[in-house]
Design a protein around this nucleic acid. Structure first.
Length: 671
RNA sequence: GCCGCUUUAGCUCAGCUGGUAGAGCACUCGCCUUGUAAGCGAAAGGUCGUCAGUUCGAACCUGACAAGCGGCUCCA
């Protein structure tokens, strides 16, 4: 028997050992000592363990708890789910079933949407398939063979026809996602079908798939179906909606349990829930969807943010202005918004023969301020700033807590600059934004560069040259920042490209917060000009920027980031004074009075609850500091200084306690 | 906007096949006067999201609308 040489790749250790094995050796034989290996990486390509190694192959094992291993596990579980669905619902047609972050999904065309009871039934059937230990068996097929074998699967047939035709530059995110999902099915090279074979070798099920897969269904340690939902075929709302089932799969029951626990944790820090529990804000039905009211405690956070950002804008050379909430429609024609965004604006109100719109953006109004008199180059950069309340008619299905609302306040600014000043101004604004993130304790973020989609010229205005130079300015500044920069093709505003700060909250979701947009179009539309040093009239560039983005969204993200335990400087109540008995009320009122003189938000809990209950209430409200006083403390002129964490220092003098609180607030530290 | 689900007291939830509502916490009032996450008791609180329809009778069945939730699409 001829022998061939393979080179197992030791991976992280960096050691490469040569090994000579018999011809026909399959990858699994190289890893028979390691039960966590469920696939092989051969010359950078992922393969089934049934792969027959070739002379010179570099082979390393893929562990089930590695990122690739989990993706293979999840994709294999998606197959098992699809098999179970078709066994229970033979009429179901298959869409696509890729692995995703933390799980997988599979789309089905079925007459009736799945019910929770259906999901349970499917899960039960899946367990049976897992128990049967069906083998995933790879089989290359020609296009013709695939088409005839899968003639009953119209969506698969479409994907076969699509092979190589998806993706490419300029695709929207949705198309890219569909293409990504489809790539799991058809890949780039030859077509393959995976047969699920029972122990006796009979065919249980098959699916068009690029693979690789686990060796057998038995290797699925833990999974759970999460929910069903509708999704448009290939991510296009003009297509039919399929029924999608989401599931998750993990390398062990423990890992699954941890994942489910993380989901519960995320629910506990959901700002919609904390907003109610901490009495921060609400969304009264009477107002309508996506319209928030801030309660006194949420109002404190909002006010601290506003005070901060107003002061910072003034420090950074901005001038505070004010503009109304509505305008005659002509303004939004001049700005160019109406043709693009009429659907996203509240419908107009008619009055005295004119149509008035609620504003969805502030820039046109700032342009009017710029244009209100002749401007000199000496005034530039001219920087206008305000808290602009804007209203956007978000589709009913997308409204979400404070992070996607219909009425919001932007800390909006517009810098009017010469083209030469633009790079410096963009840099200035980006540094401003990053400083703000630092002060608010958000440190997990990245930049996104949103550019024009060249394949959709009707969505963008302006010349190619203008777009290219504007994009180059933003890209340069973003790159110089040294921060992670993610491209967002097609995400630009119609009038120009933008940099945005995408913030990750503690549970990994990302939100667009700050934006800096380069606009060479509106100045033209408004006929903005300044007189240059040589006496000529020149057109300024305007740079739009919002630092928080929207006050509402920022509060939502901040609430989730801190899980409601705001740092002292933002906490609605900074100190809860807790008397042990009624005779200590006056003592603590005096302490509270001294704190209030120092600008501290302090409350004395003079209810007739037990002191244990008062502590519990303060903890539940996530108050950072509790000052507790009983006989001993009064005697010593001290307090028991309890932190939110449960740590406590007893016998702290009142002077010291006040300084501790004031200092923590002043330094904006978290405690 | 699309698909599915949900809506009962301030909050979290019960309420069997249709016979017109219940708990815990919170709130109010008493009692208790307390040393590190829930003291005891009482009272009060709901035209069961809204409007129609079916029925002798609707929280429950049907429809429309509204709001919420999970996705999809969208997001200046």
């Amino acid at each position: 028997m001829p022998e061939i040489t393979t080179v197992p790749d030791a991976g992280d250790a960096g050691e490469v050992a040569e090994r000579t094995v018999a011809t026909g050796t399959q990858a699994w034989e190289l890893f028979r000592d390691d039960p966590t290996i469920i696939a092989a990486r051969v010359n950078e390509t992922l393969r089934d363990l049934a792969y027959v190694v070739q002379d010179g192959d570099r082979v390393s094992g893929v562990a089930i708890d590695s990122p690739d291993g989990r993706a293979i596990l999840r994709h294999s579980t998606a197959h098992v789910m699809a098999q179970a669905v078709q066994e229970l619902h033979p009429e179901a047609k298959l869409g696509i079933g890729p692995p995703i972050t933390d799980g997988f999904y599979y789309d089905f065309d079925v007459a009736e949407p799945f019910t929770p009871a259906d999901l349970e039934q499917i899960e039960t059937r899946m367990r049976r398939i897992v128990k049967e230990g069906q083998r995933f068996s790879r089989r290359p097929v020609s296009d013709g063979e695939a088409l005839s074998e899968l003639a009953e699967e119209p969506y698969k047939v479409e994907l076969i026809g699509l092979k190589g035709g998806t993706g490419g530059p300029g695709g929207t995110e949705a198309v890219a996602e569909a293409a990504e999902g489809a790539s799991v099915e058809v890949g780039a090279g030859e077509l393959t079908i995976y047969d699920n074979l029972r122990r006796d070798g009979s065919l249980a099920w098959k699916d068009l798939c690029r693979g690789p897969h686990l060796p057998t269904t038995k290797r699925i340690p833990a999974f759970k179906l999460m929910r069903s939902a509708a999704a448009y075929w290939r991510g296009d709302e003009r297509n039919k909606q399929l029924q999608r089932i989401y599931g998750t799969a993990w390398e062990s029951k423990e890992a699954l349990a941890e994942h489910l626990y993380r989901i519960e944790e995320a629910e506990r820090r959901d700002h919609r829930r904390l907003g109610r529990e901490l009495d921060l804000f609400s969304f009264p039905d009477e107002l309508g969807s996506g319209l928030a009211v801030f309660h006194p405690r949420g109002g404190v956070i909002k006010r601290e943010m506003e005070d901060y950002v107003r002061r910072r804008h003034i420090e950074e050379g901005f001038e505070y202005v004010g503009t109304p909430h509505i305008s005659k429609e002509g303004l939004f024609h001049t700005s160019g918004h109406l043709p693009y965004y009429a659907d996203s604006m509240f419908p107009p109100m008619q009055m005295e023969g004119a149509d008035y719109y609620l504003k969805a953006m502030n820039c046109p109004m700032h342009n009017l301020i710029f244009r209100s008199r002749g401007r000199s180059y000496r005034e530039l950069p001219l920087r206008l700033f305000e808290f602009g309340s804007v209203y956007r008619f978000e589709k009913s299905g997308v409204v979400h807590g404070l992070t996607r609302v219909r009425g919001m306040t932007q800390d909006d600014s517009h810098s009017y600059v010469t083209p030469e000043q633009a790079p410096g101004e963009v840099k200035h604004l980006l540094e401003f934004c990053l400083g703000l993130f630092r002060d608010f304790g958000l440190d997990d973020y990245y930049l996104e560069l949103s550019t024009r989609d060249d394949s959709k010229p009707d969505k963008f205005v302006g010349s190619d040259e203008d777009w290219a130079s504007a994009t180059a300015v933003l890209e340069q500044v973003a790159t110089d920042s040294g921060l992670e920069l993610v491209p967002d093709p097609g995400g630009a505003a119609y009038y120009g490209p933008k940099i945005s700060v995408q913030c990750r909250d503690a549970i990994g979701r990302t939100w667009q917060m700050s934006t800096i947009q380069y606009d060479f179009n509106q100045p033209k539309g408004f006929g903005l000009e300044y007189q240059a040093a040589d006496g000529s009239r020149q057109q300024p560039v305007m740079i739009h920027s919002a630092k928080f983005g929207s006050i509402e969204r920022f509060i939502g993200v901040l609430t989730e980031h801190y899980a409601g335990a705001f740092p002292p400087w933002l906490a609605p109540v900074q100190v809860q004074a807790i008397p042990i008995a009624e005779r200590h009320h006056d003592y603590l009122r005096e302490v509270a009075g001294r704190l209030a003189e120092r600008g501290i938000r302090v409350e004395v809990d003079d209810s007739d609850d037990r002191m244990q209950k008062k502590i519990r209430n303060a903890q539940l409200q996530k108050v950072p500091f509790m000052l507790i006083a009983g006989d001993r403390d009064v005697e010593e002129g001290a307090v028991s200084f309890r932190y939110r964490s449960g740590d406590q220092d007893n016998g702290v003098s009142v002077d010291d306690a006040i300084e501790r609180v004031v200092d923590a607030v002043r330094r904006r530290v978290q405690v």
